[in-house]
Amino acid sequence: MKHFIDKLWREHTLTAEEYRALLTCRDADTWAYLQHRAQKVTRSRFGNDVFIRGLIEISNRCRNNCYYCGIRSSNRSVARYALTLETILKCCREGYAAGFRTFVMQGGEDPAQTDEWVEATVASIRREFPDCAITLSLGEKSRETYERFFRAGANRYLLRHETHNETHYRRLHPAGMSSTHRLQCLQWLKEIGYQTGTGIMVGSPGQTVAHLVEDLQFIERFRPEMIGIGPFIPHRDTPFAGEAAGSADMTLRLISLFRLMHPDALIPSTTALATLVPDGRERGILAGANVVMPNLSPREQREKYALYDNKAAFGAEAAEGLKKLEERLRAIGYSISKERGDYKRSD
């Protein structure tokens, strides 16, 4: 199997059969070799730097009713909130003082937060912090809306496709949502000029190896600047409450595969991975990730943004825990970079 890993390292592509063979391989030496290769590539591109992004969860209200999500519209147990513009700017000011140069505005598809409001909020952040990158993760919009946000000053957009397989997508989402539209949104974002991020949820109900192969091939073709990948973790108030969580090991293997596939990509070691296993963040970095996203949201709101159960939002997962995060990264040979960390293709 190691020759498949070497091929991916050299050529950044594999056949569907080769991806399948790697995903189903159970040889520990093969996976250790994959991680070693991914680490070397990451070090060659980024040294020992890990970029930090300040995450601001602006609203847990959402029009959608995705079956896996704790803030789905039909969940009546959620205490809903939405941050004001001034609160968001306060979060940015605190983050800037701590050294953050990228702010990530993430939220549900909140009907009350109009396109005009988001546009004005982005413009306000851009005026006050002209040297910072602004990333949005606000779901599916029209092309015109994405263009407005881009003109207002947004640089990056995260929109995980979750699964490329249409049948599997329907297993995870209600009628009215479609993978076709999600993929169209991603194409618009790229065409407009955003640094565009997509990604998958590992181990979601009904997911098969064939689905993962489809995802690998899509991300290979799409060439996103950012790749977000995390394990599925159930939420108690969803139809998938009784399902098992995804595999941390498979998530780490996929991070390494994506690093060899796209050597310059910005790949976060996600909060979901840190929630699933205590050293998940560090293991993600060692597998080839190069981004972490400490939480800048107001402390009193963090527990309300519960996409899944027991979501990590304090300690080293929080902006105020930056010193602790630095210590933990230093222990594995890495350090925090306070640069913007823009995507730069080297080939």
Rank of each mutant, 00 (worst) to 15 (best):
A318N: 11
R72N: 05
E11C: 14
L89V: 09
S204W: 00
S247N: 07
G242H: 11
E326C: 01
R76K: 15
D29V: 12
L34E: 01
M201K: 04
E303H: 10
L329H: 03
E317K: 10
R63N: 11
F258A: 05
E116A: 12
G176I: 06
A316V: 09
R93I: 07
I227S: 05
K90Q: 14
Y194C: 04
L183P: 03
A133R: 11
N310F: 13
T251K: 03
A79G: 14
A123N: 08
V118P: 02
N290F: 06
A123S: 12
L158W: 09
M177K: 14
A32L: 14
T30E: 10
G206W: 01
F150I: 06
G193W: 02
S73F: 13
R340Q: 13
S137Y: 02
K323N: 11
T15W: 14
A287H: 06
I233Y: 00
A32N: 14
L254C: 00
L34G: 01
Q35P: 11
Y68V: 02
F129E: 01
D27I: 09
D264C: 13
M293I: 14
T167I: 09
F4S: 04
M293E: 07
K90W: 13
L22I: 06
E326H: 03
N64G: 02
T145P: 01
A319P: 02
F258D: 00
H36C: 09
L216D: 01
P234A: 05
F103W: 01
F46Q: 02
Q301H: 14
H211Y: 09
K311G: 05
Q106W: 09
P111D: 08
V292K: 03
E317W: 11
E282L: 11
I227L: 08
I5E: 00
W188G: 07
G203S: 02
I125L: 10
L189M: 14
F129Y: 12
F129V: 06
T270A: 02
V292A: 04
G107V: 03
A21N: 03
S297E: 06
E109I: 13
A21I: 09
K324Y: 04
T251P: 01
S297R: 00
V118W: 04
R236E: 14
L260F: 00
P231D: 05
G108W: 06
Y308F: 06
C25E: 11
A312F: 03
R281M: 12
I125K: 01
T87M: 13
R259C: 08
V209D: 12
M250C: 07
